[in-house]
Amino acid sequence: MTNEIDLVKRAQSGDSEAFEKLYDRFYTPVYTYIYYRIGEQALAEDLTSDVFERMVMKIDDWKPMGKPFIAWLYTIAGNIVRNHVKRQQRIKWLSLNEQDADTGENLMTQIGKRLQHEQLARALGQLTEEQQQVIILRFLQGESIAAVAAAIGKTETGIKALQRRAINSLGRILEKDGVHVTT
């Protein structure tokens, strides 16, 4: 993380190249996190851009407190998604795109997936910030336990407990919403 801290410190001193390197480094993880929270590519791209704009504006507030820089970006991303959802009142979901057409899957299957994504995103919004992060990183992105621990800034033991609580909470929320998670 030393190089990461150096990079952030350079950005804090106004080094524009450092900002660009931070963008290149963290664009994909931030986008992925937002995508799973809202389920729409174009919107996720716009909100990801918002995250990095706020990163520039607020980077002076960041201090190395033992957590990695990406954890701070996830927090900003979570806030931006929450504000967006609040403003919009309702979220638009996955639209048919070329990828869907290429797969040759039938329309009903696609609609089923969209609804599932909507339900999942809504349920995710009711979890704590860290629970959301662990669900997205570990269960949706398929990251290893070590990678999730590094991204969230916790030990692997802590992440194991967190993922159990997160998945149990998510299951309860989905059941309450009438979603049958058992196959």
Binding site: P29, Y31, T32, P68, A150, A151, I152, G153, A161, L162
Partner: peptide, 20 residues
């Protein structure tokens, strides 16, 4: 989450090129 230990691996970096 209070039972969890704080992260000790401060020197580790994350993969920026990660994703689905």
């Amino acid at each position: 989450e209070s039972e969890e230990e704080e992260n000790k691996d401060k020197e580790k970096e994350i993969n920026p090129n990660a994703g689905p």
